[in-house]
Amino acid sequence: MLDRVRCLMRRVWRNLKQSPVLCTAAIGTVAVALTIIAFFGIVVLNVQQVTRQWSQDIQVIAYLEQSPSASQIQAWTAKIKAMPEVEKVVFVSRDEAFRRFQKRLGPDAELLEGFGPEILPAAMEITLKPPYRNQAGVGELVGRLRQDANFSDLTYEQEWLTRFDAFIGLLKLGGVIFGGFLLFAALFIVANTIKLTLYARRDEIEIMGLVGGSSMYIKTPFLLEGALQGLVGGLLAVAGAFGLFQWLLKEGLAGFLLISGIGHILFLSLPQQLLLVAAGTALGLLGSAASLRKFVRI
């Protein structure tokens, strides 16, 4: 058994040594293809972060005609908080609303001279749980609130929500289509590069078959070789994606992120990096398997 494993490893090593150019080409193809996919993944990851940040602004505000008593505030807060869509409820008194308004006006706050907090209504600011931060979620919550006469005056940004939903939908669809396309393109290119390496060794494959090599005996070193090339390509892709992340995203998008209110830009997490390396290995393996089907017919 040990002899066979040693022999197998020797054959894999000899194959790699025999055609260094093709071997490098296969590794390079996997690395480039996966770097592009990883870079796209990083962009999606960070756009998701931005949209998550934006979605925190999705609120429903219920304006109250009268300033409620402390017990009413407590009862309403508890009632609203019990609704499934609600994450947080904050009561904003007239005084608090007036203070915020003054603050927002900044140097123009003097315009409010002669006015008091009674010009603004008290309100309940309702923040939704992340899964409900969309048009449908807001719609459900508003419907539920309207059943209570105390919350008849509701405000939420309908038009902004519609656009936000459309943007997220487009982003997801684009991600699936572009990501899927990239993955298939990568598989196609890798399979063809490996086909070239097999084509260069077609004589060896033919002779192995003629002298009694089983399909498994012939294929195993090539599959291992493909997997090894994919593994190295995957590792290089992680390094390549990190390089692009440093040069293009981190530097280039710093200003945009500041405006978006995001302090830092994300790179792939460790499990995502491992997934990328595993994807490289799988690409190499599948590429080899697909090409071998054509060359080994025993």
Partner: peptide, 10 residues
Amino acid sequence: RSSRIPHLRR
């Protein structure tokens, strides 16, 4: 069967 062909060739 094709898996037995190598044994024939040996």
